[in-house]
Design a protein around this nucleic acid. Structure first.
Lengths: 195, 195
DNA sequence: GTTAGCATGTAAGGAGTTACATGATTTT
DNA sequence: AAAATCATGTAACTCCTTACATGCTAAC
């Protein structure tokens, strides 16, 4: 596994883990997880559902609305036992595949079902990935005498600032994880969540 | 035009407008324009250069290093008159095609060669696109009782904050444009352009 | 002399979009 | 009764990446 399109599959599996759903509803939820206003098309979602069905991770319950014939079926997808197993295993993975731009958001969304150690590993991995990028950019920016107009400089500045902010966010989250301020929602041990 | 892959073509044209370059150097520069640490592969760049050559917008100067035979050629690409024309025309376009995530960065990078009116139109278009997204997300977030765990909420919060920050950045830039604080580098007439 | 960076490409395939095609249900 | 939203899919296409294949040139 750890293919490129794994993020979508994981999102689907995780959402169906919460509750069975139609493809239509699923798409909206996936859009939230994928975040930042990008919308997933049905042309991507339905083939994905098909392949997950073929793999045996989900099943399609067609409630054929009585007489069955001409009516277009409404399909509710739900997770199988194998699907649950697969999802759980996928959540253990805390290596580079979980740090990618795409995958990270989805992994983060399911942190409630990920154990603390893995959470910290993922957050730290993500952070060092971004830090790497940051000084990569900074190095090449110095080295090559590049296009020096004010707009290019402003674009660069703004980009760096955004990444720095992202890194700070991750640092805060890591600190909070380590301090145990974010509790496992399954745990009933009193969580004194401090904003 | 205004195809999806137009951003890369525009970037190449714009960079070659500054100076003739090897494909190798071009890639590095494009990476800067595309920003945020993404790197363009040769598998994308060279076919693009080929198609731009076929279109007559650029020419490939092969300096066959004397005897010409077995040596692998080093190729310097440079803009033709038609390419220059095409680029200039492309910069006039200030509609939705210039507000896309991909395209916007590239358009911004060439703002020095774009007139103030078009700059403001693009910045405003970009801003309203982001605002649209923002309250789209906010609306759907309220409506559907969705996954309520702390991590999903935090992800959402962080995403919204980032977009808001982006909008503020754009607002500042628009104000500065209108106040004429950023001058056209070519212009010597002190333009206090007040929209 | 060998590593690192410079330099040019191609073939296969993956991930996703757009546009199309169809129909049911709810709200106004 | 019309409009909006819910709902399911497919075919063609595009952009881009990965992996491969080749060779030159400077530095250590």
């Amino acid at each position: 596994m750890a293919r490129r399109g794994a993020a979508l599959e994981l999102a689907v599996l995780g959402l169906l883990h919460d509750a069975p759903m139609h493809g239509y509803e699923l798409r909206k939820q996936v859009n939230v997880l994928l975040g930042w206003g990008r919308v997933l098309s049905y042309g991507t979602l339905y083939p994905c559902l098909k392949s997950l069905t073929a793999a045996g991770y989900i099943v399609a319950d067609e409630s054929s609305t009585a007489e069955g014939r001409s009516r277009r079926a409404k399909i509710v997808y739900r997770l199988t036992a194998e699907g649950k197993e697969h999802f759980t295993q996928a959540l253990e993975e805390s290596g580079p595949a979980a740090w990618d731009d795409e995958a990270f958001g989805v992994r983060f969304a399911f942190f409630a079902r990920t154990d603390t150690a893995a959470r910290v590993r993922i957050l730290e991995g993500r952070r060092s990935r971004l830090e790497e990028r940051l000084d990569n950019v900074r190095r090449t920016a110095q080295r090559s005498r590049e296009r020096t107009d004010a707009y290019t400089a402003e674009l660069q500045r703004h980009g760096l600032e955004s990444v720095e902010r992202e890194i700070n966010w991750l640092t805060d989250l890591i600190d909070r994880e380590r301090a145990g301020l974010i509790e496992d929602p399954q745990d009933e041990t009193s969580s004194t969540s401090q904003h």
